[in-house]
Amino acid sequence: MLDLLRQSLTEAFGGAQVEARSTIITSGRLNGLLEIHGYGEPISVAVEVIRTAYPRDVHRVIWHLDELELCWGKAKSGHLIKLIAAEHLSPGAKSTLKDKGYAFFERSGSLFLRTKKMLINIERPSKLPSRVRSIDLFTEAREGAVHGLLKNAFQWMAGADLAEQSQTSTYTCSVVLQELERREWCETQGAGRTKRRRLVQPGKLLDDWAEHWQQRGMSRSRWYVFIENPHLLIDRLACLVKESDVDFPWAFTGAAAANIYAPLLTSVDSAEIIVPPGYAVILGMALKMKPAPKGSNVTIVERGGTSLQFRELHTLYSASFASPYIQYLDLLDGRGRNKELAVHLREQLEQKWGRPKTSSR
């Protein structure tokens, strides 16, 4: 990496002499120290090499370079440029370095360096190393943390607060937050016990979740309940649940629920209910419904994980409704006018985020 950097600096400075020097500066040690001659006062380039850099990575290296600069000021003269060299630098890392006045070099050949007399800005396409892979954010445990972050988009949160809200471990939340920070979908402030993060790309996270959601398997059973006015199906089911005194978690989802949360369709004549795995028959019997492979008006979905997290109690219906994020994901099945309703519900969610709209499905 240092050889590549030296070649790049030689070319950028029009064939100037670039020499390697001792990397020891008083109390600190660098990965490399280069000197550029031929432009009046010698220019020294203090180099730290890292493999792949995201904003959180460059902050740690910046601290080290700043510490070494203090030693340099006491021991050396001339202009010092602090540079980070990496196999791959994310856009956020590059932006951070530019804003703070640091130089950077990427194996692809990208070079950014500013002196009092010149600005060098060579941009070449970078490629993320194949060995750097994203973790799976959507295991059953991690989905809870993802759901909690979406519910609190653009709000600063400590990992412990997220763990408490999402009913997941602090370790699981930490894994999710670190991955989102690596993707630059999450911002960080503070350190240690005062460390806080906030989700700043909820649209990208929701889109990623949607792709995984549609690939999962689940158990669905179809039922029929008699009702004279199909428009009152949700009301009827809510009353039946109340009368049966169901003692396990459940929630309305799908088109009927979403149309109440974000009205769009004139009517929906069927309903979907989420229950924990193994409880479909119990609910069907409790509500005195009949199994109906054909002609059903109620679908019971057995699903674990985060599906029943952050349920909302609707005052007009005295019933539990799934989180609007779960409703949105369930609408992506493409049935009927579900896609149209999903777009409308997404718009409502984006308004709650309080930021410009992201791409909708």
Rank of each mutant, 00 (worst) to 15 (best):
P293E: 03
R183I: 07
K352I: 15
F104P: 03
C186Q: 11
F310D: 14
Q155I: 13
E87W: 08
G304S: 14
P91V: 11
L332M: 02
K352F: 12
I50Q: 10
A210I: 01
P324W: 00
L177C: 13
S267D: 14
P291A: 06
L9W: 05
L83T: 08
L4V: 05
Y261T: 15
I81H: 05
E48A: 12
I260D: 04
I300S: 01
V225S: 04
H314A: 05
A75P: 01
A251Y: 01
R131P: 04
Q351G: 15
D333T: 09
D66N: 13
Q167I: 05
L264E: 04
R311M: 14
F226D: 15
G15F: 00
A271G: 03
A342V: 03
P202K: 05
L341N: 01
A20W: 01
L83C: 12
P276H: 07
A158P: 06
S359D: 14
F154E: 07
K127H: 10
E184M: 06
E67P: 08
V47A: 03
H212V: 08
S90F: 00
V45K: 02
V47E: 01
L205M: 01
E11M: 09
H64K: 12
T172G: 04
V45N: 02
S90A: 01
V176G: 03
G354M: 09
I122C: 13
A256M: 03
D161T: 15
C173D: 07
R303I: 09
I300F: 05
G40N: 01
P356G: 13
H314S: 05
E69D: 12
D245I: 11
L5R: 09
V246S: 02
A163R: 08
F112D: 12
H64A: 10
I50D: 12
W223S: 09
L162I: 01
Y325M: 07
S130P: 13
S318L: 09
L162K: 00
V45S: 04
Q178Y: 10
E140S: 14
I227M: 13
L206S: 10
L233V: 06
Y325W: 07
Y328F: 09
K195M: 12
A256I: 00
G203N: 05
T172D: 08
N121E: 15
Q327D: 11
I326D: 06
T358Q: 14
F154H: 15
R6E: 03
G14K: 07
P91Q: 11
P42T: 08
L68M: 11
G28Q: 06
G148C: 06
D247T: 03
G203D: 10
G354P: 05
G254C: 02
Y39P: 05
S90T: 00
